[in-house]
Design a protein around this nucleic acid. Structure first.
Lengths: 218, 218
DNA sequence: GTCTATACAACGATAGAC
DNA sequence: GTCTATCGTTGTATAGAC
């Protein structure tokens, strides 16, 4: 799928000046200013993704619950994945665009690119968003399922492009390293890692990630 | 809380009493049934650890808040670290005993022992305890500080025994791998890793942890 | 009477003030 | 360097539950 990332990233703009979000009557044409379709979609998406996982959740179901047309998903978030990123994971980047960028370059340096990009993006977004992500995962029972689907899609696409065996396990192992990195740097804030230079961490962690991607894992 | 009679017994057997209810002196000997010193210590420890971190919290301060003697910490929990494990981290094992066990064996197999023990212990405890641990870290602001102190003490003791440089960073890197492993196996429950055989994971992960412990990290 | 939870004193280690 | 305060821990006598 070719995805153009339209949705805003991270910040909550001054969009929501809604006075009554519980209106059930639907009109055709452009709705009055201040009716925050985008927020309604995010809330509906949180519920539907949590209930059914990524693959099980349909754009139509989300739009119906939000009380808007399904086309609004593409208008506000570019794609189903863009909505997913904004609503559930609150990622500070677009997964597809990132995956595409990571594929550019030699396969034996993929781990390096992943670690560098991961730290750079989350750093610039501020650690608070990662904390919110983890909290949503530990809080809701189904949120782990959502993250699992996402990781599977994201990492398995990367790994398959360099042709390793035991893709599912390798994807899981990569997840342990990257999630743990986020936990230590942004949630628990261990020193010196939390304030360490990016390239130092890349040199330290990338070889381990690369082993999970293409190395011998027993 | 549990002081209804305030008195002090001198060496000569004379009993001097006071009617001041705020006197800190307490009777010796076994207290009336139903006065749960152990629970009082855990509750006090939660508060003091959360306020001051591991090193900042003193056994005496905890005992004072619980209204008992500091020696009760050793009597009921073996040590300050045992109390910490029970009260804040709710670990399914005793950190000191575990650290001692991990030191037995060749240094180049330390990573293997850590991974195997980590998975075995948490598996037998059920993943729910790990979820609770993570939730307490993400929830309370100070809990990350507590975990940080604990990890530092636990891992730095292990690493220093095998003599590597850059101990603090290596400890942090080990934390990324182990915390991430716990997140993926017990919280997010990625498959196949969540139900994978222990020894398969040991072969996959131990070399990476060993590199953080004694290898070249850039 | 027996057992044990308890308080108190004291020890070695350690960190900071002077 | 010396002194002091405080830390975690240990030993021990004992009060009170059983």
């Amino acid at each position: 799928m070719n995805v153009e990332f339209v949705g805003r990233v991270g910040h909550d703009g001054a969009v929501s000046t809604t006075d009554n979000p519980e209106t059930t009557a639907r009109r055709r044409g452009r709705r009055p200013a201040g009716q925050d379709t985008r927020t309604a979609l995010i809330e509906a998406a949180r519920a539907v993704f949590a209930e059914n996982g990524y693959d099980g959740a349909t754009v139509r179901a989300i739009a119906t619950r939000a009380g808007v047309d399904a086309a609004m998903v593409n208008h506000w978030f570019g794609s189903k994945e863009g909505l997913f990123a904004q609503a559930v994971l609150e990622l500070p980047f677009d997964p597809m665009e990132l995956q595409k960028a990571l594929r550019d370059g030699p396969g034996d340096e993929l781990g390096e690119r992943i670690v560098r990009t991961f730290i750079t993006r989350w750093d610039s977004a501020g650690g608070g968003q990662f904390v919110a992500l983890i909290r949503s995962i530990t809080g809701h029972e189904q949120a782990g399922h959502v993250l699992r689907d996402f990781f599977q899609r994201f990492f398995s696409g990367l790994i398959s492009s360099i042709g390793s065996d035991r893709i599912p396990l390798r994807m899981n192992l990569c997840a342990t390293q990257m999630v743990g990195l986020g936990m230590v740097r942004y949630v628990a804030k261990f020193e010196p890692l939390a304030t360490e230079e990016v390239e130092v961490l890349v040199r330290a962690i990338a070889p381990n990630l690369q082993r999970y991607l293409t190395g011998e894992i027993g």
